[in-house]
């Protein structure tokens, strides 16, 4: 029998399979939206702000990786998509200057209630050593140290009159293994529900004041330039305070699903 007519025999099967797929309407994935703020005020690129240490800073660039999201189920177990070392899925490069990078969908999760999400801020050690990558992990994005191979997890660049560097430059590049930080963001006050008729959105704040502040606020007069893993290490724990959940929406899912 010619191959073509043989494949015709498969047609009914394909139709049935396609029908089955349509019968289970897809679940809306949890959407994440990030607002960049400095305390209560929005962060505006190029506009001077006052840091917790009382210095003036005008941000030119704020970029960082969020990766490997895992959802905590109400019963305490984790929901995580399998890792594929050949795919950039699950890696998000956030750029405060590019609105299209500040919202994304989490990997599909089964229906149910989730009480929080965990992210790595930065690119984990395994992926850091897995060769040429694509998508968010494409080294052409400039989040990569070419002289000490490895991703830059977090980049803050700008100007501060307090900085003793040429042009009062501020350059904080946190990269290298050991500087990634894992954060767990609880969904409060109520859990996030994943179901066919709801589009959940988790709204995060990335607060530069929280990152720069803390018990010993960062002073650009003393530390205007960090470009090596060993200099960045003392700052890496600050990554843990960058993100928090501001609020959560549950909207009716976009289009009505037909069986």
């Amino acid at each position: 029998m010619p191959a073509f007519s043989r494949s015709l025999l498969l047609l009914p099967l394909i139709v049935v399979l396609a029908a089955c797929r349509q019968a289970t309407p897809s679940l809306p994935a949890i959407q994440v939206e990030i607002s960049h703020v400095v305390g209560a005020a929005p962060l505006v690129i190029g506009v001077a702000l006052t840091t917790p240490a009382g210095e003036t800073l005008s941000v030119k660039r704020l970029q960082y990786y969020l990766s490997n999201p895992r959802l905590l189920r109400a019963d305490g177990s984790w929901q995580a998509p399998p890792q594929d070392l050949q795919s950039p899925d699950g890696y998000y490069l956030i750029d405060a200057a590019k609105p299209e990078t500040t919202h994304f969908l989490l990997p599909a999760a089964p229906a149910g209630e989730y009480s929080g999400v965990e992210f790595t801020i930065g690119v984990d050690e395994v992926r850091n050593g897995s060769g040429a990558q694509t998508g968010a992990l494409d080294p052409a994005h400039g989040m990569f140290w070419t002289w000490a191979t490895g991703y830059i997890h977090f980049k803050l660049e700008g100007r501060s009159p307090a900085s003793p560097e040429a042009d009062h430059a501020v350059t904080l590049h946190l990269g290298g293994n050991g500087l990634q930080r894992t954060v767990f963001l609880p969904f409060a006050p109520k859990p996030v529900r994943v179901s066919t008729d709801i589009q959940p959105t988790v709204h995060l704040h990335a607060d530069l004041a929280a990152f720069l502040g803390g018990a010993a606020p960062l002073k650009f007069a003393e530390q205007p330039l960090v470009m090596q893993a060993k200099d960045g290490l003392p700052l890496a724990d600050r990554l843990g305070s960058l993100l928090s959940v501001d609020h959560i929406h549950h909207e009716p899912a976009g289009a009505p699903h037909r069986p």
């Binding site: 897995s130 060769g131 040429a132 080294p139 052409a140 400039g142 070419t146 002289w147 000490a148 191979t149």
Partner: peptide, 23 residues
């Protein structure tokens, strides 16, 4: 400094005294 063969060329490509070429 290069911990993967595929990523090694990024070093000489970017190095300002070698090829000085951004990706």
């Amino acid at each position: 400094s290069a911990h993967h063969l595929e990523l090694q060329p990024l070093g000489p490509l970017a190095n300002p005294v070698e090829m000085d070429q951004n990706l």
